[in-house]
Structures are given as structure tokens and as C-alpha cells.
Design a binder for these strands. Structure first.
Lengths: 114, 114
DNA sequence: TTTCTTGCTACCAAATGCGTAGCGAATGAA
DNA sequence: TTCATTCGCTACGCATTTGGTAGCAAGAAA
């Protein structure tokens, strides 16, 4: 029977989050560089490795590759014929991320007028 | 007049996100270790430095201090008499983060049953 | 065959994070 | 007043993660 203390998952070098709370495990994974960016950019449709690199502009292949492996372990993305795609869970997650996109613009504007 | 090309803000060593998109600036800031965790934990009410450290359990004072400075620059948190508190924007952001808390449990359970 | 693109890895430098120790200021008790 | 405690925070050194470049093996195209 699954218990919270089994976390953090997936089992890899974990930075923060030794609290055993799923939300912290999620923050840990999602909080790595480019993790949200990759999910976000995959929202525009399937993409090959190179294509993703271009959508993210400044991401290095090293980091992209690491994130892709982690996101696959988390089951948010997977490989398909046309490259990498969001799984159904990945899409769910993306929908939770979308409001941030809207909000970020207001935040940006607010910061601008010091 | 504010333009997107002014980003990323706030002006600090920026990891990813040189795309000029607010969403990427937000991801960059929010994607640093413990950034979401700090906002999340401040949602339980004002906290002093030490109190926050305990809520986050495994965060080091070094990192906590850096995140606090950054989050203040972003205007998501501020100091008050009782310690650190979320600003009104910080609260808005937290509300966008909350659904992740709910979702993380389902994600955790789904991962458990391999 | 040659040439090109693609997915990815090796390598190393730079940035970030962690853990411990401890300082100066504030607080409280005696 | 003195002493001890707590607090916010910083300095230090080491571990981990990230970034940038180069380039390889595999496949497609010509």
C-alpha cells in the first residue's frame, strides 16, 4: 500500500524535499531548470529533440536530455513516432501551468512600473 | 512603455530564459530550488526566518536567504512585523499553485502503482 | 558512395546548492 | 548591570547541477 513516506519519487538525486510530501516531490522535480519550460513548450505539440531545443532557445543539449529523462520517469512525457509528446498526465499538468502564463504578464507589467 | 524585451526580470544572474517572454522569466524564478516551497509554506501564515526554515525542513540558511531576497525583489513576499509574509501578488500566485498540491497526490499514487 | 541531419554523449568550466560554524543584535532573566 | 539565549543572517568549503562546445554513431537523402 502506497504511503507518503515513500517519496520523494522518482528515485534520483533529490535536491530539496525530504519531507515526504508529494507536493514537495513535485516542486523538486518541477523546480529544476527548464522543467516547466519543457512541459510548456511541448504544449504546442509533439517535438523532436532538436525542435524542442529551438523552442526553448537557450537550453543546452545536456540539460535538455537530463530533463527529458526525468520527465519520462515522472510519466509526464513520452516518446512517440513524431518525437516527444505530453502524456495525458503531462497535459493535465500543463493545464495547471497555463494560468501562470496569463498571470506572468500582469506580474511583469507590475514589476515594470517599479 | 514596458516591452517584453526588457525581461528577464528581476535583474540577477539568470539561468535559462533569455527568450524575453514573461512566462519564461517566471519559470526561471519559480524554478529555482525551494522557490515554490517557500511560497507554499508562507501560505500557512507569516513566519520568521527560523520558522520558515523549520517549515521547509531541509532547506539551508544560505539558500533560504537567497530565495527570500529574490522573492522580495519579485514582490511576492515582504517583511512585516511578524516576519515574512506574502504580498497580495504572492497570494495570487499561491492560489495558482494550490491546484498543484491536489494534483500531486494523484500523480504520486499513479507513480506508485508503477 | 558522399553529404546532411538528428539524437545524444563527453568533457570541462561556471553556477548553484548544502552543511556547519559562528557573528552581531535583540530579548529575557537575575 | 551581567549573563545566557535566541534570532537573522553570513562565511566558508565541498558537493551537485547547469552551461557550452565539440563531436560521434545512426539514419535519410542524393
Amino acid at each position: 500500500m502506497p504511503s507518503e513516506s515513500d517519496f520523494p519519487r522518482p528515485g534520483r538525486p533529490v535536491r530539496g524535499s525530504k519531507t515526504g510530501k508529494p507536493i514537495m516531490a513535485l516542486f523538486d522535480l518541477l523546480g529544476r531548470s527548464w522543467a516547466m519550460g519543457v512541459v510548456w513548450n511541448l504544449g504546442e505539440g509533439p517535438a523532436t529533440f532538436r525542435a524542442l531545443q529551438q523552442r526553448c532557445e537557450s537550453i543546452s543539449p545536456t540539460v535538455l536530455n537530463r530533463r527529458l529523462k526525468e520527465l519520462q520517469e515522472a510519466r509526464w512525457i513520452e516518446k512517440s513516432g513524431r518525437g516527444y509528446v505530453l502524456t495525458s498526465e503531462g497535459k493535465e499538468l500543463l493545464e495547471l501551468l497555463r494560468p501562470l502564463g496569463v498571470w506572468s504578464k500582469r506580474w511583469a507589467e507590475h514589476l515594470e512600473k517599479t
